[in-house]
């Protein structure tokens, strides 16, 4: 065994024995406030469910309607964050979050062709709500601009990718909503509505 190989193996073994518990909360990992803003919503289930629901709805309505959200949703996130920082806006109560998921899920399940303006308004309101919620992680040392840029980038990427996924899955768009692909997307809408309904029930119970 060559010296280099032996050294490499020992190093590898040493590194492997030093395995630590993953500490993925990016603030403590000191990878920068941009990444903190980008990763925080992706590691919060409430954001993941709400963003996925919105992306699915926008994708199911087609590219012409959905592409507005690429700009509207990140803007909403930034405004929510700014309102929370500047005006001390508090996060919405759990029942409002649950009701939002319920409404989006129902719209998706019913395959309603809602107008673009209504879709944009929904996306903007959801963006503001989630922006405020994500401001809860800010500490005095956080660079707010970097954090907001990270949050907006995550919103942009997530919504665009989910919409693209749905559009690719539903292609061609002219296919009726009663096709198996349409039913699959609508079934996920039913699941989302069910989750929203249960969360609303839970917030009423507590």
């Amino acid at each position: 065994m060559s010296l280099r190989l032996r050294t490499s193996l020992l190093t590898a073994l040493l590194l492997l024995t030093q395995v630590q518990i993953a500490d993925a909360h990016i603030v403590s990992a000191r990878l920068g406030d941009f990444y903190a803003g980008a990763l925080h919503p992706l590691l919060t289930l409430q954001d993941v469910v709400a963003w996925a629901a919105l992306g699915l709805l926008a994708g199911s309505l087609g590219a012409a309607s959905g592409r507005w959200l690429v700009a509207v949703f990140p803007l909403g996130l930034c405004l929510g964050l700014a309102l929370a920082v500047a005006a001390g806006l508090a996060p919405t109560p759990p029942i409002v979050d649950a009701a939002t998921i319920l409404v989006i899920g129902l719209l998706l399940a019913a395959a309603l062709r809602i107008p673009v303006a209504l879709l944009c308004m929904l996306a903007f309101v959801l963006g503001v709500m989630r922006g405020v919620a994500n401001a809860g992680e800010l500490v005095p040392q956080t660079d707010r601009v970097l954090y907001a840029a990270g949050l907006a980038s995550a919103g942009y990427v997530a919504i665009t990718l989910i919409m693209a996924l749905v559009l690719a899955f539903r292609r061609p768009e002219t296919e009726p909503a009663s096709s198996w692909r349409g039913i699959a997307v609508r079934a996920i809408g039913g699941w989302l509505a069910a989750i929203g309904l249960m969360m609303a029930g839970l917030s009423l119970a507590t």
Partner: peptide, 21 residues
């Protein structure tokens, strides 16, 4: 096709009844 879309919602109604004890 109605089944996979509507069933979860009806089941969630039952779940809410359970949550509310």
């Amino acid at each position: 096709w109605v089944l996979p879309i509507v069933f979860p919602l009806v089941m969630a109604l039952g779940a809410v009844v359970g949550i509310l004890k």
